[in-house]
Amino acid sequence: MRESPSILAALRARVGAIEGPRPAEGALFALGAADLDAQLGGGLPKGRLHELFAAEADDRAALAGAALMLAMRAGGGAGSEPLLWLRQEGAVKAAGTLYGPGLADLGFDPARLIEVVAPDEPALLRAAGDAVRCPQVGALLIEPWKAARGLDLTASRRLAVAAEKSGVTVLLLRAEAEPGPSAAYSRWRVRSRASAALEAGAPGHPAIGIELLRHRGGLDGLSAWLEWNRDEHSFEQAPLSGAVLPLPAGRPAGAGGAAPERLSA
């Protein structure tokens, strides 16, 4: 029994060797919403692979927005490091091209963006493999199209290992895909949420709902409704009241199918 601490330490070392280096204390980035950060133990690690799934195909724009916001958080606010956004051609056709003024409206400096459009999935994965090894890349967003069968456990493990080595934060955007085995550090499901209406029933600040599906640290069942504060480059807990039940524009409440959906949302 006297030997147990040393045995434990040896086991820890072995497990540690298998798991790879743990993120250092300073290498976490906070999301900005205090409750969520506390539950995550300070935030998410930089230099890791994080996977984002869209709840439905139409949540594509919310997914891209969430990824960009997370990348901004990982880069510390406005940032200046280049952000590489690898997109597969099908995804560009489905979601549209990236629009500079709109990205700037989220607080992102479009001059940082380098958009790469890959014609197919193998080209996308190959470009991702090259990009993730370049330490000068601030953040890497990979947007495959639909199921992306080539992106299996091996491929994601390769990305994850390379990301740990180079310190590039990688965000994988899966719009129309089912979560499968992967080596991602964390996995989230993103959906768009009703925004807090501004005066005269105008759509408000970007609002997303995120739900933690998997976390290397063993966390589970986290979910949050977040609003993006562009001026602070930060997420905030969305105000619960007021946002939930705005009236349909120009029509009395309850007419048509919108209001009941609204209640369940």
Partner: peptide, 14 residues
């Protein structure tokens, strides 16, 4: 940009 405004332009354009 003007502080406090919501995004007036989309992130993706068709």
């Amino acid at each position: 940009l003007e502080a406090g405004e919501p995004p007036l332009r989309p992130t993706h354009l068709f």
